[in-house]
């Protein structure tokens, strides 16, 4: 038997209630507010629920995709959008080709005009040279 215990009890009985509360409140709070283990099986339940929700979420998104494409109106709209995009693309490509061809033809004409102009210039120079020679003779 611990001989200290009766002494402690004696001292405790001599103290007033406020004194007891004052001294022990901090320690009492720490003891009362200690962590407590989660209930048995808590982790298993959470993991099962997480797995269930994860499976539910992925199947929900898959079925949402299926539902979306199962709607006839939406299917028609998607097909129409693809067709419009394709025709716009083809038209754009054709226009680009036409523009490139036009540009090439214009360049050819410009080159031909430059060559002709050079030739004419040379002829003109030649003629004026001849007329100068005639007048000096």
């Amino acid at each position: 038997m611990n001989p200290e215990l009766p002494q402690q009890e004696l001292r405790r009985n001599e103290m007033t209630a406020p004194e007891i509360a004052d001294i022990s409140l901090d320690a009492l709070l720490r003891r009362t507010l200690q962590r407590e283990d989660a209930p048995a099986g808590f982790a298993e339940r959470v993991l099962a629920e997480a797995t269930r929700r994860q499976a539910g979420a992925s199947s929900a998104s898959a079925s949402a995709r299926r539902r979306t494409f199962a709607m006839p109106g939406l299917r028609f709209a998607a097909a129409a959008a693809v067709l419009v995009a394709a025709s716009v693309g083809v038209r754009y490509h054709a226009e680009q080709q036409e523009r490139a061809q036009g540009e090439a033809a214009r360049n050819k004409v410009m080159l031909a005009l430059r060559i002709t102009s050079n030739k004419l210039h040379q002829v003109q120079m030649h003629v004026s040279q001849m007329s100068t020679d005639d007048s000096t003779n």
Partner: peptide, 19 residues
């Protein structure tokens, strides 16, 4: 890793909520 974190922290989370 989720299950490890769950086991490590379950007492803390449960106790805060319980208290």
């Amino acid at each position: 890793e989720f299950s490890g974190l769950l086991r490590q922290h379950q007492a803390m989370v449960f106790s805060i909520a319980l208290r």
